[in-house]
């Protein structure tokens, strides 16, 4: 059952992400990306990382994808994206090569198989409890730093995107410069 679930998720995620990468329509791409993210949380649940799975759902699907969808309202996302692909062969060569190399690396027996376990889960605790214990004891400082980072990012996002929000894009002329520059 677990095996079946893994392969199901694996194949679906790969397919969805492939759609994201190859789709010409930005909406399709985003939708398939969001779907892929949801399925990845499924993988996390299989692995027993319940808390991570939930976080994946909330942050990625809930927050990040919502952010993308809102951002897309600023862009013209309805039509197909026209992209010039100068060397399509090269892309596949590089992508294929990287896949082969990484598969070779990971297919090899993991060298650190006998590596010591620094923070094994506490006996009898559920996954979120165990995660909480480690996160708020051993990783407290990085956690706080990450919090500050998120705050900074939030403010930066607001400032960057929110400036001159009151004027319509088409009417902003001062820093667009010569309209001929628009292509």
């Amino acid at each position: 059952m677990e095996t079946f679930a893994f392969y199901f998720f694996a194949v679906s995620i790969t397919a969805l992400f492939a759609v994201t990468v190859w789709s010409k329509n930005i909406l399709y791409a985003m939708t398939s990306l969001a779907a892929g993210m949801v399925l990845i949380s499924g993988l996390f649940f299989i692995l027993g990382a319940d808390f991570l799975g939930v976080v994946q759902l909330i942050v990625y699907v809930g927050a990040v994808m919502a952010l993308y969808s809102f951002a897309m309202m600023f862009f013209d996302a309805t039509g197909e994206i026209k992209e010039k692909h100068s060397h399509p062969g090269l892309v596949f060569l590089l992508g294929g090569l990287s896949a082969v190399v990484m598969v070779v690396i990971f297919a090899a027996p993991v060298i650190g198989a006998s590596a010591p376990s620094f923070y094994p889960p506490v006996e009898g605790a559920t996954n979120p409890q165990a995660v909480g214990l480690v996160l708020f004891t051993k990783y407290l400082v990085p956690f706080e730093v990450a919090a500050v980072m998120l705050l900074v990012a939030m403010i930066a996002g607001i400032i960057l995107a929110g400036k001159k929000m009151d004027t319509s894009i088409t009417e902003v002329t001062d820093d667009i410069g010569d309209t001929n520059e628009r292509i």
Binding site: V64, L67, M149, L150, A153, A156, R182
Partner: peptide, 23 residues
């Protein structure tokens, strides 16, 4: 995940600016 979230927040802000400037 935290880094990704921050990156998206800042990155999207920049994207909006670029889009405003170059269309």
């Amino acid at each position: 995940v935290a880094v990704a979230a921050s990156e998206v927040a800042v990155g999207l802000g920049l994207l909006i600016l670029i889009y405003k400037k170059y269309g």
